[in-house]
């Protein structure tokens, strides 16, 4: 079995009444990139802003649009190197920083090359996956 670490938080959000569409996306001026597909869209940024091999970083992720009703209760962020068949060596942790806003710490990509990042937006039993590929320079 191949273990892959993902960040998850099960925030007992008292989310009744949350709108299906989540928060407004911040602008690029705030250093956020956008990632969307169909009815889902997120904005994310890294700290430090430039990813480097072997350097721990933090992700700030905002759910801007989500397909199902109710709050986005968690975002599972994972990373995989498709060419090598392995994921990260560390288990990130996630904290909710506000409605639809999450902060994920303990991320580290330990090799240069192409990484596939997956953001799973969890709403109730609905999971919506967004994928972003990152080429990490040596």
């Amino acid at each position: 079995m191949r273990a892959r670490w993902a960040a998850a938080v099960a925030f007992a959000s008292s989310a009744a009444g949350f709108l299906p569409a989540a928060s407004a996306c911040p602008s690029a001026d705030e250093g956020f990139a956008r990632l969307g597909s169909g009815q889902a869209e997120i904005a994310y940024r890294w700290e430090p802003s430039v990813l480097k091999v072997g350097q721990f970083f933090t992700a700030e992720v905002i759910a801007c649009r989500a397909p199902a009703a109710g709050a986005v209760r968690e975002i599972v962020l994972d990373a995989l190197m498709p060419a090598h068949g392995h994921g990260m060596n560390y288990r990130p942790t996630l904290a909710q920083a506000g409605p639809d806003r999450f902060r994920i710490t303990g991320l580290m990509l330990h090799m240069p090359g192409r990484w596939r990042l997956t953001f799973d937006l969890m709403q109730g039993d609905t999971r919506t996956r967004l994928t972003q590929e990152v080429d990490l320079k040596p």
Binding site: M1, R2, A3, F56, N89, Y90, T93, T105, M108
Partner: peptide, 12 residues
């Protein structure tokens, strides 16, 4: 202590 906090054993 970040790496120590986040490291977890994996099968591999």
């Amino acid at each position: 202590a970040g790496p120590t906090r986040h490291v977890e054993p994996q099968h591999r």
